[in-house]
Write a protein that binds this DNA or RNA. Structure first.
Length: 719
DNA sequence: TGGTTGATACTATAGACAGCATGTC
DNA sequence: CTATAGTATCAACCA
């Protein structure tokens, strides 16, 4: 079934119904979502069915699951990438799946991530005859085409639990799509009027803007008008909230500092410079009605369901980096934002507004966003880099072995159903040529992945990343600096570069850095791989990423200082850290066979990046509850390893950390480990992982090409 | 003279998914 | 391809 419904109409209940019914009949089901936050939410909700004897599990990047853990699991909640990964690794559990739920299938139109979902659904359908598919979609024009592709029944509904009025505001008056009008009392400027108006009525307001900066400045501005409307008790509560937002013992962040000045006025902003924890707390406070108004970027439109009585979409254009110009926001996304209006149980209705300055603009808004249907969902499988990745994955996992099978597969994708498979031929040839040229696929037929290609696919690396990694490893020496490794990873497509600020000396500094650093593993002008590297300005951004991560690995610097020095929010740092950790350990795995010393170095770097610490703290942060901040405190107090901690009194540790509970937990862990494995293996425990079994690990004297050809010659490990 | 206001030019721009293998609790 | 908020700079203006 393809169910096309407005956002927040409770359509996941239908999906739960399908999953639970199947589970009770002994058929396993998987629930695929686009975001980790959504995965957690669905998992929590599905756990309610445990009382029926249904076992539910959650898996995603940060939350791995072994095939043993999967035994007896009836319903698995996973991100689309994780599902893809399970298929690539031929997880036995996946073989038994009988129902698939694909939430937010319209995300197939996303150029980067859409094809993952498309390919995953195609694979599942081809593998399991009679597979039950439930696809949940926004109300898009061509949901019928989606249903046809999936061989599904198409159901469209405009049901909403709370009635929605949509309209355009212009010069003091809202004109609704239903022909109605509403006057808005002036209260300062336009947004002030609209926000305060709904607040006085007892509702909350949600404003969508197109830049982070706007979200902060507008929230600050609105605070001046909203603050005076609050009751004394609300004010008291918000002062408390402002403190709660930081959590218990976390390091202060830029975002927190900005929030603390406006939250007491009942307003907050929401964007990706906030960490996930901070975002979650802001969402929670808004949901509880403590915050009256939220100014958000698209983080909120995509993410969790967080409705408000009045939603205002201020900006309908957005800068597009790839084209360098500003473009109209797709109607589908605007609908997603507008659909957030109206809180079930709290609001009698929802009001969704666009802003217009002129009559022309008002007409345009109506025509584009309110009265006509949103864009079709189009397959993005034609995208060259995406095609490379999936071609490799299909071959590496044995899904296709011949040209004919490949063609058959592509014909059964949504691309093949809606567009013509033949349009892909050119791109496909190029993708294959690329993979062969760089040794990821064997030349000739049948289609076969090289061991290197199989490994790249298993590690979920972009083929370009894998190639660059291999090259960097070929040049790495035992004295290669952490920065050089980070810089090498930062130029891969799997680690996005940061924006380099002009107006500061940053650009010059990084350029000089690039010129002086002789140790770069992947110099920007390297002729052979220059096509794989970012252009020079992008290269500077990559250097900045590397410099940022290097700074993060020095625990003596405060997070706030690092943020300020680089102009990068804690949330942005977090995403880089997560990815760098993954890439470093993948690279370590790639190196584990031939470059044991380098692999060890990379493993250590991976842990250091994860915690943001210098080598000297590695032992301390292996304790649960101890990260970069507390680790530093303990170290400065003179407790530099577990042994020293064991000799210290619990009271002294409690005083140093300001928490008796953590001190107790630390002492308990230290005691438990005593007499156990030594400090070295303690550091690696639970994550180190890739210590190679091959004892002949000394760096080979041969050149990189020979070294790697040796790896390539090993018998394939594919099934 | 010092300070405010206003015209003008210039700059920067949303978001976020993924791993293998082994050991420990 | 369909832009604009935020900010810096400098001139005009006022007390």
């Amino acid at each position: 079934m393809v169910l096309a419904c407005p956002t927040s109409s409770g359509k996941s209940l239908v999906a739960y119904g399908a999953l639970v019914t199947a589970a009770l009949a002994g058929r396993k089901g998987i629930y695929i979502v686009p975001l980790r936050a959504l995965a957690s939410e669905k998992y929590q909700e599905l756990k309610a069915f445990e009382s029926l004897g249904i076992k539910t599990a959650l898996t995603m990047g940060e939350r791995d699951i072994s095939s043993k853990d999967l035994e007896g699991v009836d319903i698995l909640v996973a991100t689309s990438e994780k599902t893809d990964s399970l298929l690539r690794h031929r997880s036995p559990w996946m073989e038994t799946v009988g129902v698939v739920v694909a939430d937010e299938v319209h995300l197939m139109r996303d150029p980067q991530r859409g094809p993952t979902l498309e390919v995953t659904l195609t694979r599942l359908q081809r593998r399991h005859r009679g597979l039950q598919v439930v696809a949940l979609s926004a109300t898009v024009q061509n949901s019928v085409a989606l249903a046809k592709w999936l061989g599904a029944e198409h159901i469209r509904s405009d049901f909403r639990p709370v009635p929605l009025r949509q309209g355009v505001y212009r010069e003091g008056e809202i004109t609704f799509t239903d022909g109605g009008h509403r006057q808005i009392a002036e209260y300062g400027e336009v947004l002030e009027s609209l926000v305060c108006d709904i607040l006085k009525e007892g509702g909350q307001a949600l404003v969508f803007v197109n830049s982070r900066k706007s979200s902060v400045t507008l929230a600050t501005r609105l605070g001046k008008s909203v603050g005076p409307l609050l009751s004394p008790s609300e004010r008291d509560d918000l002062v408390g909230l402002s403190k709660e937002l930081g959590g218990d013992h976390e390091e202060e962040t830029e975002g927190l500092r900005q929030l603390s000045s406006i939250v007491p006025r009942g307003v907050a902003f929401h964007n990706a410079s906030l960490t996930n924890e901070e975002r979650g707390r802001v969402e929670g406070a808004f949901r509880m009605g403590r915050l009256k108004c939220l100014v958000a970027t698209t983080t909120l439109a995509m993410g969790l369901n967080l409705p408000a009585r009045r939603v205002i979409v201020r900006d309908t254009t957005r800068y597009d980096d790839s084209m360098g110009i500003s473009v109209k926001v797709p109607a589908l996304e605007v609908h997603q934002m507008l659909g957030r209006a109206g809180r079930p149980r709290y609001d009698p209705y929802g009001e969704a507004l666009l802003l217009a300055k002129s009559e022309d603009e008002e007409e345009d808004h109506f025509a584009r966003y309110l009265t006509s249907p949103p864009e079709d969902v189009e397959s993005q499988l034609g995208n060259a880099s995406v095609l490379r990745t999936h071609l490799l994955a299909l071959v590496a996992s044995g899904e296709v072995t011949t040209e004919r099978e490949l063609q058959g597969f592509l014909e059964s994708t949504f691309y093949g159903h809606t567009l013509s498979f033949r349009d892909l031929r050119g791109e496909l040839l190029q993708a294959r040529a690329f993979l062969e040229r760089w040794g990821l696929l064997e030349r000739g037929s049948p289609l076969r992945a090289s061991p290197f290609g199989k490994l790249a696919s298993d590690l979920y690396l972009d083929p370009v990343t894998a190639v660059l990694m291999r090259r960097a490893l070929g040049r790495a020496r035992s004295h290669t600096s952490p920065f050089a490794f980070l810089a090498a990873l930062a130029v891969t497509p799997d680690l996005l570069p940061l924006g380099v600020r002009s107006g500061t000396d940053e650009q010059g500094m990084l350029a000089r850095y690039a010129a002086e650093e002789k140790d770069l593993l992947l110099p920007p002008e390297e002729p052979e791989i220059v096509d794989l590297l970012p252009p020079f300005d992008g290269f500077l951004g990559s250097l900045k990423t590397a410099a940022l991560l290097e700074a993060w690995m020095d625990d003596r610097r405060k997070l706030l200082e690092i943020s300020e020095a680089f102009g990068v929010g804690a949330g942005d740092l977090r995403t880089r850290v997560e990815r760098a950790e993954w890439l470093l350990s993948s690279m370590a795995f790639l190196a584990s066979r031939e470059r044991r010393e380098v692999a060890k170095q990379l493993d250590e770097l991976s842990v250091r990046v994860r915690y943001g610490v210098r080598s000297e703290l590695l032992e301390l942060v292996s304790l649960r509850g101890i990260g970069r901040v507390r680790g530093r405190v303990l170290y400065e107090e003179g407790w530099r390893d577990l042994e020293a901690l064991g000799g210290a009194g619990e009271g002294a540790i409690a005083r140093a950390l300001g928490s008796p509970a953590i001190a107790r937990s630390v002492m308990e862990q230290v005691r438990r480990r005593k007499g156990g494995p030594g400090p070295e293996s303690t550091v690696a425990a639970g994550r180190g992982g890739s210590s190679p079994s091959d004892p002949s690990g000394a760096p080979s004297p041969e050149g990189p090409a020979t070294r790697w050809s040796r790896l390539d010659e090993e018998p394939s490990s594919s099934p």
